[in-house]
């Protein structure tokens, strides 16, 4: 389902239903960027039909300029072949920490790949995107990205949350009181199995450094809907979830 988040940022993609009817979202974010759209993650192969229909509706005749990958595991890259087949001129922007021949599908051409370096900015179709390390991640070569124009932080797997059926596509401001801690906790406990070995205060202190450094108006997790209204509340609920898991 196509949902407008803020400014020129859109969210698409489906979710898969698991135990107890909890949905795990697999989102793709799109910055329309005035004629040179930027796509963040490629979605799952399981949702290929819906994703491609949504992308065509959203982009119309405009080809995306760049596809940014937060990391390379299948739920984030499974639909890459469909996107690059539909728009072969799109460049793929990946973390400089990955080895493409081992971590991307074998048919991706080297000429198509560009690297994002943590701690740097680069301009894509006139839009500055900055890169930082993935602070909470499940795959070493994961990076986070930030779009200063909309204030969006793309956090890959972190800040994901499980969704009950009736809330599958809702943003934080569309719930009575934001995203419940329990939904964040369910997701993080399942996705980051190392957390019980960690000191939650240290995790939260590292996350706080990211938010202290930039003005975040929107958190865009792959496995949840954008947190676009009350970022401070979203972070506070995340912190609470982490303390309960660790």
């Amino acid at each position: 389902m196509i949902r407008h988040v803020v400014g020129d940022l859109y969210q698409i993609g489906e979710s898969s239903v698991g135990e107890g009817g909890w949905h795990e979202a697999v989102r793709i974010y799109v910055l329309l960027n005035d004629g040179c759209p930027l796509i963040f993650d490629a979605g799952s192969h399981v949702h290929r039909g819906q994703i491609m229909a949504e992308l065509h509706t959203l982009l119309g005749d405009t080809a995306p300029g760049y596809v940014f990958l937060t990391h390379t595991e299948l739920p984030h890259t499974g639909n890459l072949s469909a996107i690059l087949t539909a728009w072969p001129s799109a460049k793929l922007v990946v973390s400089s920490a990955i080895l493409p021949y081992c971590e991307l599908p074998w048919w991706v051409k080297e000429e198509q790949i560009m690297y994002g370096y943590a701690g740097t900015n680069a301009v894509y179709g006139g839009r500055a995107i900055s890169f930082l390390d993935g602070i909470l991640k499940d795959q070493p070569g994961t990076h986070w990205m930030y779009d200063a124009q909309t204030g969006t932080l793309f956090t890959a797997d972190a800040f994901g949350y499980m969704l009950p059926t009736n809330s599958e596509t809702l943003f934080d401001d569309e719930h009575a009181d934001g995203i419940p801690t329990d939904w964040l906790k369910r997701y993080h406990a399942s996705a980051f199995r190392f957390l019980p070995q960690c000191d939650g205060n240290k995790v939260n202190a590292d996350i706080a450094k990211v938010f202290a450094k930039r003005n975040v108006n929107v958190i865009a997790p792959t496995h949840g809907n954008a947190i676009r209204h009350n970022v401070a509340q979203g972070v506070a609920r995340f912190n609470q979830a982490i303390m309960e898991i660790c």
Binding site: D133, P140, F194, V203
Partner: peptide, 15 residues
């Protein structure tokens, strides 16, 4: 530190 970046949040002796 690269493969398991989360271990910076773990306890060295316990680990």
């Amino acid at each position: 530190r690269v493969v398991f970046p989360w271990i910076r949040w773990a306890d060295p002796d316990a680990t």
